[in-house]
Design a protein around this nucleic acid. Structure first.
Lengths: 206, 206
DNA sequence: TATAAATTTGACCATATGGTCAAATGTCGT
DNA sequence: ACGACATTTGACCATATGGTCAAATTTATA
């Protein structure tokens, strides 16, 4: 049914448009501030049509958040536990920076979902994310034992990586304001990425 | 009139209670999701009473954000431009960490205001914050010229500090989830603070 | 204590919003 | 071309929400 070359069905195309609009509206105004009318307008369809594909605002939000989770997991995979810390952390930080750059809306929705107390992704935090952290913690501790990293608490390192990389999505507006209103261009962003990698590596590599 | 020992007037006391409730509701649900009814309930006063002190939701929100700005400025002052980078950055990072710990609601409101595109604090970003950044950038560049810091872009250092420290407020729930649901205790938070300071210093001090 | 000013509060109002419905229209396989 | 099914859409509805008002009550002030 779902062969790669099938042209998108009406349903697929509409769901795509609605999800895209929803992502943007949820990211800008938060769950509470988003309205189905705004989402419908953003998707270019009448409001009842949104409800036809996503029965409730809650369900639509969940669908949006699921895409965010997918993006998170993709970036998470770039943490190569078999590599040495420099390579593993560099790849991971760069993946996270690219995610913030390329999917700022997803990143903001993630942040705001967490600030709300994670009503939708609590289960993800308790299962997938917890496991991811535990396994990577072990790897980091091994690196420390091997004298490759300073004796740090792995979690705090992850927090710093998550926070710093996400900041480039969450605070894109603030950053632009400090750059005379202009968004970071690719070259500047690349410099930021490099500096983030080097600062963190410089701070934790033994 | 406003001598230090004057007992709070009815007005002062009510405004305080309303602002406190508003801060909590805005932080939890965002501007759009917050309701005046919830704020009134949180403050323990009837809804019209909230409007008596703060005519509109928008004005109430502005009042809350102003308190956040004050907190931001207080922490900003701890960046001692006359000191050497180790001392200056340590004091600043620690002040920011303490702020995130002691005023998590303010920190979250700040984050969500910025994610909304800073409709209320745009002016602050363009004036006070821009000036603060420019003057500190100069100091950091001087430190670099004196060989005390690696050749970094000062702004990216500030972003890392802001992001990482704020994370402990913004993502407190996520962090708690990764700690079996328990909030970081004081000792653990102190360790986090130390590690953040040491990682960043280790990353940028020459 | 009398009077003015500040504060409180129940009852309301207009609008916005999430969601529904049924009729109309489009799509697709046969 | 036909019937079955998917999709679209204008008109609605119930509720929530920001905000108002005027009467009642409390607090300051002279």
């Amino acid at each position: 049914m779902n062969s790669p070359i099938t042209k998108p069905s009406i349903r697929e195309e509409n769901e795509r448009a609605i999800l895209a609009a929803a992502e943007s509206v949820f990211a800008e105004r938060g769950f509470g501030g988003a309205t189905m009318a705004a989402i419908a307008a953003g998707a270019g369809v009448p409001k009842p049509n949104v409800h036809y594909y996503f029965p409730t605002k809650e369900k639509l939000y969940r669908a949006v958040v699921e895409r965010v989770l997918t993006a998170w997991l993709d970036a998470a995979r770039s943490f190569d536990m078999s590599a040495d810390p420099r390579a593993a952390l560099t790849a991971y930080i760069e993946a996270k920076m690219d995610l913030a750059r390329e999917m700022p809306l997803s990143s903001r929705i993630w942040a705001s979902e967490i600030m709300r107390g994670a009503p939708v992704i609590q289960d993800f935090l308790d299962t997938t994310l917890s496991q991811w952290v535990r396994s990577r913690e072990r790897v980091v501790r091994r690196w420390i034992a091997e004298g490759k990293l300073k004796p740090i608490e792995p979690k705090f390192l992850f927090y710093m990586i998550w926070a710093t990389t996400q900041h480039y999505a969450n605070a894109a507006h603030e950053i632009a304001s400090l750059e005379k209103g202009r968004t970071l261009d690719n070259a500047t962003f690349a410099k930021a990425k490099r500096q983030v990698v080097e600062t963190i590596l410089g701070g934790v590599v033994a």
